[in-house]
Amino acid sequence: MFSWIQLESFGAVAEELHFGAAAARLNMAQPPLSRQIQLLERELGAVLFERSSRKVELTAAGRTLLPSARRILDLCSKTELEVRRGSSGDAGAITIGYTAIAGQSALPGILRLASRHLPGVSLVLREAVSTDQLDGLSRGSIAIGLLRPIVARRGVVSRPLMEDRLVAALPEGHQLATGKGVMLKELDGLPLMMYSTAEARYFHDLVMRLYDSAGARANVTQFASQVPALLAFVAAGLGVSLVPASAMGFAPPGVVFEELVGPAGLADLNRADLDIAWSESNTTPAVTRLLEIIPGDTTRR
């Protein structure tokens, strides 16, 4: 089988039609260049050049080989470049998991950063709840997750990405929609659109802690795993819900929001922050570079 150096030598001579000029172009002496051409001709069983004291010309076999040789050399050069870019983080693919709200709030900024700083990297986006993202990070099916800080997972590293809090989502025209905020106690007994315990345990438990802190009774009448579904229930007038403040700009018509007020210590309890997470064992150069350009410097394990 012929080699890269043999094809490169052939291509240079075919384009220069002069062994001396081809050797200078390849930064090598002429005898080794002639040797490579001889080895290639022996491998192919065909004479590729007609040589005389005055000129060098391609034979019919040489003219047949030249287009294919150029394609092979171009492919090899492209492959070498892609490998180099991949090893430096300038190329490759990154699968990013994100929650529905993160897809509206944090994800667009990350996509803009990637487009600006890593134009050769392709991004694959997968919407998933936080628990499914953690599983994906552990399996290696996603490389980066935009998720809520639910539980620690061995081998998964995370850091804060965006501060958030819960606010009350109310049907338009609701008696509590005054623009002055809602006390948690005022939500006592109202139909509550609630997070699923299986898929949205983080938010479910946070809502229950907030209700308990105020001595309010959570009258759960509907469950959903994602915020948009809860907001749809609210817009239909079926009840109230507590959702991340980052969802306020993406709510459907018919939903209004009120800040939660009281009791003392509510601000410390009412934290619904978003983390960025990745696997320690599944970090490619492209993933490392993307993490470097995304703001945030506190790491959790």
Rank of each mutant, 00 (worst) to 15 (best):
Q222A: 06
A251K: 09
F2A: 07
L291K: 04
P108I: 00
M193S: 03
D90G: 08
V156A: 10
I294W: 01
P253N: 12
A14K: 04
A245V: 09
R25Y: 00
D188Q: 04
A232F: 07
R35H: 14
Q104S: 08
A100M: 00
D212Q: 10
H204K: 12
P108L: 00
N27A: 13
L66G: 03
S213L: 08
S225V: 01
R51F: 01
F2V: 06
L176E: 11
I72A: 14
V227A: 11
V240E: 11
H204S: 14
V243K: 14
R51W: 03
I293W: 05
A198I: 09
R63P: 00
G136V: 02
V256L: 02
L111Q: 13
R271G: 06
A106F: 00
L125I: 00
G215N: 06
Q104T: 07
A277Q: 02
D205C: 09
L75A: 15
L125H: 05
G155P: 03
L113F: 00
R25Q: 14
A216I: 05
V182S: 12
V227K: 01
R126G: 02
G11V: 10
A143F: 12
R271N: 09
R217A: 09
A224V: 02
S105M: 02
A14I: 05
P171S: 02
A235P: 14
D268H: 12
V151C: 05
D132A: 07
L123K: 01
V83S: 01
S88R: 15
G179T: 08
F19S: 11
G62Q: 11
S34P: 00
L118G: 04
E199G: 01
P295M: 01
G86P: 06
V129A: 03
L73E: 06
A200Y: 02
V255A: 09
G20E: 11
G97Y: 00
R201Q: 06
L290C: 08
T59A: 14
D90A: 15
S158M: 03
E127Q: 11
E41G: 03
A277M: 06
V47S: 13
S105I: 00
S53A: 14
S130C: 03
L161N: 10
V56I: 14
A69Q: 08
V240Q: 05
V47A: 13
G120E: 11
G103E: 00
E57R: 15
A24G: 08
S225T: 00
P228C: 04
A60Y: 02
A200S: 02
A24F: 01
A200M: 05
L39F: 12
R148A: 07
S241M: 11
V207Y: 07
L176A: 14
M208D: 08
S241E: 10
L33N: 05
L26Q: 07
G45M: 01
G179D: 10
P119R: 11
F49N: 03
V47G: 09
R70D: 09
S138D: 05
L231D: 05
Y202W: 13
A232I: 04
R70A: 12
L26S: 06
V207P: 09
